[in-house]
């Protein structure tokens, strides 16, 4: 079902035409962003139906993890808890968004196969659905963020506009990654497993639990600079803790977003017709 009054579907007319169709899909999805929102909201509601705390269960378990790791690792690493607790709290919460959008991206098209195979809903709608669903979850977890910032007094020094810019750049990046794994998972069903392993590996390689300042030496430094997830986390966390992200962080994230979207949009242009047949 669709609302547009005029529909024109043709065979392949060269790459330029395909590009135009892919762009039309994107445009249609932004025009009907309300649908993506409704679907995302419904996902959350149905996932936690019958539970009293709903998504706050995840918040609660995250909060417990933050507390436990905060105390334990502050002791092990011999760092002041006033600094380490907010550090690990912000790290875990925002890593949750990154990993959520990317791993759930694997199901974006697979779960929408029913709708995709008998309606002309834009494909991008389902990408936004995944992203918005994770933003709704993040909104719940903001309780943790606000709590640690207030408790440890960082709210006085937090640079919220800068952190929001960081969050925006992170979302721009994870959404293209989400779409990429979505297309790949539709075609090759091994991809979700691979993505899961990579994200778990990335969690340990990224300074979420350990402070980047504890690393020294050129090789270790390279590990940070080349790790896109470090820039994502740092771009949000550093300003919230009154510090500054590395000078390269925002340009790198912006560049990565542009390059990533160009790449994914090209793949989408080439596979758009076929995605529904992969399912």
């Amino acid at each position: 079902m669709q609302t547009s009054e005029h529909m024109l579907r043709t065979g392949r007319h060269g790459t330029l035409h395909e590009f135009g169709m892919a762009f039309a899909d994107l445009k249609a999805s932004t025009r009907r962003i309300g649908l993506a929102w409704s679907l995302a909201w419904h996902d959350i509601v149905s996932r936690y139906r019958g539970s009293i705390l709903g998504p706050f269960w995840i918040t609660l378990s995250m909060g417990l993890m933050v507390l436990g790791m905060g105390f334990l690792y502050a002791e092990i690493f011999k760092v002041p808890i006033q600094r380490y607790m907010p550090f690990v709290a912000l790290g875990i919460v925002f890593w949750g968004v990154i990993v959520g959008v990317i791993t759930e991206g694997c199901d974006t098209f697979v779960h929408a196969s029913g709708m995709l195979s008998q309606t002309s809903l834009p494909m991008f709608t389902f990408v936004w659905r995944t992203v918005l669903r994770n933003l709704i979850t993040l909104a719940h977890h903001m309780v943790i963020v606000v709590a640690v910032l207030v408790w440890f007094g960082f709210w006085k020094v937090a640079n919220v506009p800068m952190a929001l810019l960081g969050l925006l750049l992170v979302l721009l990046n994870v959404s293209w990654a989400s779409m990429a794994v979505g297309i790949a998972s539709a075609r090759f069903r091994d991809v979700p497993q691979i993505v899961g392993s990579i994200m778990q590996f990335a969690m340990f390689m990224t300074p979420i639990f350990w402070e980047p300042g504890r690393m020294s030496g050129g090789r270790a430094h390279a590990l940070l600079v080349l790790n896109p997830f470090f820039h994502m986390i740092d771009g949000i966390r550093a300003p919230l803790m009154g510090g500054q992200a590395g000078s390269g962080t925002y340009p790198i994230l912006a560049l990565l977003a542009v390059v990533g979207w160009l790449g994914v949009f090209t793949v989408f242009t080439l596979t758009r017709r076929r995605i529904v047949h992969y399912l």
Binding site: M1, M7, R9, Q118, T119, S120
Partner: peptide, 22 residues
């Protein structure tokens, strides 16, 4: 399904004026 707009033609063309309900 092609008429509903879900499947893209490999060749040829579909043109529909009006709101579709499948």
């Amino acid at each position: 399904r092609a008429l509903s707009g879900a499947y893209e033609p490999d060749a040829g063309q579909i043109e529909i004026h009006g709101q579709i309900a499948s």
